[in-house]
Design a protein around this nucleic acid. Sequence first.
DNA 1: AGCGCGGTTGATACCGGTGTCCGCCCTGCT
DNA 2: AGCAGGGCGGACACCGGTATCAACCGCGCT
Lengths: 353, 353
Amino acid sequence: MSSRTPKPSDDEALQSGRRRATINDVARLAGVSKKTVSRVINRSPSVRPETREKIEAVIARYGYAPDPQARGLAFRRSFLIGLIYDNPNPQYVVNMQLGLLDGMKGSGFELVVHPCDRGSTTLVPDIRAFIERQKLFGVVLTPSVSEDEAVAEMLREIGCEYVRVASIAVDAEAHSIVTRDRHGGLLAGRHLAELGHRRLGFISGPDRFRSSHERRGGFEEGLKEHGATLSADCVAEGAYTFESGMEAAARLLALKDRPTAIFAGNDEMAAGALHAARQAGLSVPEDLSVIGFDDFQIASRVWPPLTTIRAPTREIGRLAADRLLGVMEGDKRDPEWRMPSLVVRGSTAAPKG
Amino acid sequence: MSSRTPKPSDDEALQSGRRRATINDVARLAGVSKKTVSRVINRSPSVRPETREKIEAVIARYGYAPDPQARGLAFRRSFLIGLIYDNPNPQYVVNMQLGLLDGMKGSGFELVVHPCDRGSTTLVPDIRAFIERQKLFGVVLTPSVSEDEAVAEMLREIGCEYVRVASIAVDAEAHSIVTRDRHGGLLAGRHLAELGHRRLGFISGPDRFRSSHERRGGFEEGLKEHGATLSADCVAEGAYTFESGMEAAARLLALKDRPTAIFAGNDEMAAGALHAARQAGLSVPEDLSVIGFDDFQIASRVWPPLTTIRAPTREIGRLAADRLLGVMEGDKRDPEWRMPSLVVRGSTAAPKG
DNA sequence: AGCGCGGTTGATACCGGTGTCCGCCCTGCT
DNA sequence: AGCAGGGCGGACACCGGTATCAACCGCGCT
């Protein structure tokens, strides 16, 4: 049975949806060559409107969708986008994924996830193998891998599209999504300063996260607007984890002249600060104000509910996907922005006395 | 330039790793046909050991790895595994992903994620389109989609391998990973009963989650061991969310003869119960014991830290991946089990008086 | 020696798309 | 009318693998 003259049962199977249509079916049914169908799929301008419509009708009629594998094989690149992350916070990861998926919806691309360990000595080759194996169209990197220059260098070298989500523009604009952490820090500083706090503490994230520095920078800026300052002895480094936040806060609270308010680099550490305060016999917000960053679920679960900075993680994810897909479409529209915002709950108040 | 006699520069590129080796390169360099190389890759037994070794040497020498796209095209199936979920808890999702990735490591498969909405009227066609578009090798379903028979029916119909993670064996053994929620519930019941509680409350998850029923069933079983019972008026339905837990707990605490201990269907709702208790002026665990389920991060962040049932989510994910890949390898080894376990923290104590 | 047989191997088609390149047709110009 | 040129469409090779099937090998048999 020649492929040019498929047996009737084949067409029946097509009709009933039992068999997926191929480009050959579409071409045959539309009375054109498969190359012309391919042109329609790929939006080539050199197809007469009349021909195009005829083909599109057949495509719609039979619900034809090109096979990404075959297309990928010919294109030498798959229709997959990778999410490469080392951020240990589940909520961040999931929100980012949801945002990416939002942006990819209807594009025909799929998302494949790839957690990694930035401390690993094989980080770069591991990521490279991941990309080359599946010939990924592009990848999205989130902090802190997104801040790794060796990784970015490798991506450029192998010619893989990428978008880096980071606190500052770590790369050319086309490759960066900036999270405006500095602005978030500023909002936190303003809020505490406006409440009247003058003796402030800061629990930073790990040094390798750019956001640690940005959030602190913004915080100091916000304080300065109201004449307050952050003294060096009131800064403790944490690791963006609950336990590290608890320990860092305990250190700050043991200070002779302890701060009346603490800005923790993220909600996890702020939750730790709450525990430390309780252990130190201090009540929040009466004796100590605490403000977090992220506004993840935990912020409203702890007691008192955390005043925090809401980071639009999901939106950021959507923007990242838009940017990445835009590269392919040659699309250059500027995505709109979403800034971090202040969410006031119960963990901050004016200082006593 | 014929493909039979590649120009020297091609081989140089191969040597230096600038060009990925193809099956043709390997065949040429090993002095065999590409079909024989294919046989080695696919572990066909009908290759002489001598030939096999020669080919394997070339493969190792040039770091050849078959192209999943091309392989997929020929196999009519991709080397991707889908995670289909509708569980809104980020921690669950991330742990599950990590577990799946653990189990897939080194297998050459990649994980693509697909959140869905079980309430959607297009649930089944959406999932089907997702699978057929990328010709997924198989999928892993988690609660509550995993408990949807229409979805399972569709998967069987299109011949997609699948594993359903659920509270009970919802399918043939080869397709089920059972989370033993009942046992977790039993541990919770035992714990509270042993502490001396006799007036107990239960906040269930939504009815459509099988785990809601299993956890309750196990709970009652555990209570019964010690002569305690769960009265129907002390059961409130929640939605596995913080807010719903808070509301449900408030209802239970408003009862004339309020329970002295509450088992919440998950940690989120237990955290909500903690808030409700605080609003009712009760202190935990003095006036009320609360026990959760999952042992996600939130359990140790709230105050007091939650006594809870640890569900080995990541392990479960690994088992699911093992099972799915096992299907391909024709592997039939029984995966070992991990049961939920009790983690005692500060939210449970003996009742007063 | 001739034959049949099972284990190995390779030539070729094929999976479902895309690129190259050439020929066709229609148009507008001289 | 004849010709150049651009828009349009198709034949064919190719992407990197796998399946089919026949050829080939050496062996034991009669």
